[in-house]
Design a protein around this nucleic acid. Sequence first.
DNA 1: TGGGTTACCCACCAAAAGGTAAGTACTATT
DNA 2: AATAGTACTTACCTTTTGGTGGGTAACCCA
Lengths: 111, 111
Amino acid sequence: MTPELKQTSEQIISTELIIKKAVEVICGKWRLIIIHLLREKTLRYGEIKRGVPGISEKVLVHELKQLVELGMVDKQSFGEVPPRVEYSLNEKGRTVLPVIDLLREVGQAFI
Amino acid sequence: MTPELKQTSEQIISTELIIKKAVEVICGKWRLIIIHLLREKTLRYGEIKRGVPGISEKVLVHELKQLVELGMVDKQSFGEVPPRVEYSLNEKGRTVLPVIDLLREVGQAFI
DNA sequence: TGGGTTACCCACCAAAAGGTAAGTACTATT
DNA sequence: AATAGTACTTACCTTTTGGTGGGTAACCCA
């Protein structure tokens, strides 16, 4: 255990809170897949949809809305017809990329 | 991006699979809290229950069963009355500890 | 005039996850 | 005889999560 992760009993509650929050942020069937797709470049709604085969539109819209609300993804609508909406992973969203990379390593053993 | 995480389009599908599996393994409202509690020492059922306030017995039993099934936790029953059952995090279970530590860092920003 | 394009919304449904409250088995203790 | 202690099980319920299949607006092009 690294020194800064040592904890007193007083810290345990907040540790639980933080872990629970983090789990909320990264969980869901598609959440990390979407973030991983956005890691390289800004994508339009339709591009994300095609990049995440199997996801329903309802869920995709909902996930994107949540990611924007959480401050992880920036959304830009161009006032065009047909509509053009672009989503990009911002700085806050990028903080979870190491989690994805670590899960890729850890997850291997569970396949 | 570290070199070993560079990926071709052929690898994308398996990457998705691995991420999905990892999410399955670590998600749920209480899963990581339980693992985190078991990080230091073997605990009896009742100790875990008291260590995770708020969890229902049904869910705790179910979670422990799953952790054993996933090969992350070892269970030992002593043939005593009143019963004594001990749970401990094994090597496979310990592979997710770095995920917890990383989530503690990342999660801070989302509180 | 009518279909194509894009990014959604809506009503409804099914499955999974989680919670509640009660009960069980077996023994020791009062 | 009744109670306490331990590690569960069971039936029932609510909430959350995800899926299905339709609809919409606005403009362009044929």
